[in-house]
Amino acid sequence: MTKITQEEIETALKHEISIITGKKPEELKTDQSLTWNGINSMGFVELLLSVSRLWNVNLLDAGIGTADVSTLSALAERIGKELAR
């Protein structure tokens, strides 16, 4: 199976956040927080459901913390780690 890269995860996350927030993917920044990228409480629920659908990863059960959502990039990294398990 081909290993998915951090960049691919970030691109997919940007696409999903774009659908949830209505922002254009090019307006989203990987080094900024999810809040900065327009995600709120219910938007985060939608995002976690997308992560579960795309990669079969349940981040809430995996015990994500604030550090994992500090930036979009950190979230992608955490998803990558879960996929590597």
Binding site: I39, S41, M42, F44, V45, I64, G65, D68, V69
Partner: peptide, 11 residues
């Protein structure tokens, strides 16, 4: 909330 419910779980 972050500690007890998780990030973004204020609701």
């Amino acid at each position: 909330s972050d500690r007890d419910a998780g990030p973004f779980m204020l609701t």
